[in-house]
Amino acid sequence: MSYRNRTIPELVERAIDGDNRAVGRLLTIVERGGVQSEEVAALTHPQRGRAHVVGITGAPGAGKSTLVGRLLAEYCRRGHRPAVLAIDPSSPISGGAILGDRIRMDDVVPEGTFVRSMATRGHQGGLALAVPGAVRVLDVAGFSPVVIETVGVGQVEVDVVAAADTAVVVATPGMGDAVQANKAGLLEVADVFVVNKADRPGATDVRRDLELMLDLAHVTGADTDASGAVFRPEIIMATATSGEGTVAVVDAIVDHFEHLHISDRLERRRAGRVRAEIRSRAEQELLDRLATMLHTGELDDIIRDSVASHRSPVQAAAEIVGRLTGNH
């Protein structure tokens, strides 16, 4: 029987039983959004929480996918069952995408690892909605860690990584990455820094720059992690192409997770994640309603009034907000 015709509860049940096809199907549903994805969220949310969620980001060409592949292999070696969400941009023109991250992981990743390629589908906001849902599915299906890999270029991508339990920022020599990281706000979100391509000239310079920035972090308040605890991120030197440094990177990620287990840091961090998701979801809902009302013409009277100078646009907007929140 085709998995497209199975009910959501059936798919969730199968996913929990370790059926990768069901997991794959659920991820498609979550990605598309809509009523079905709400059902998936309702079923998976209460069961979530076992997975260590790790976000990995860095500039294009930093070697993230290769590094992720190495990390997965190391996790497998340690007896874990990891999964990855590899996020790549869609073509802004056609909406299509070429998702090539699997190849870079292919070589080193043992069987049993779950890799899912996800396109941004042109809506950065959509990513903020789809990723938490996808992470929940993988979590409930028993994968841990669940690694989210994004190109650290847009704010939404950075936010997605920042919302993980542990955020890893990858820098490389020769790209002015330290400076870039600072600009994009990556410095504040990083729990672990990886200087990849550490065999290249300039790698120690990148490390030094990062150390300097971290030394100054208490001035900017960046020395506290997302849960409010004082934390100085480790800087690990690695060469993903050869696998050098992989063990140290995994150690640092695991150390950070242990740090989160002191008092209620993990709970607070995850509460922040739920809160961010609720906010994105609510914003989306309001915007959807507004779009529908504009589209159906039910706001035309208010707009016409304002055009005719009976009330100011500010008053009109306030009225519309009232209607938005009053209805339903």
């Binding site: 996918s65 290769t66 070429i98 090539g100 991250d101 699997r102 190849i103 292919d106 070589d107």
Partner: peptide
Amino acid sequence: FGTYTEAAIV
């Protein structure tokens, strides 16, 4: 020597 896999450049 190790082996080589091409990164996806499409």
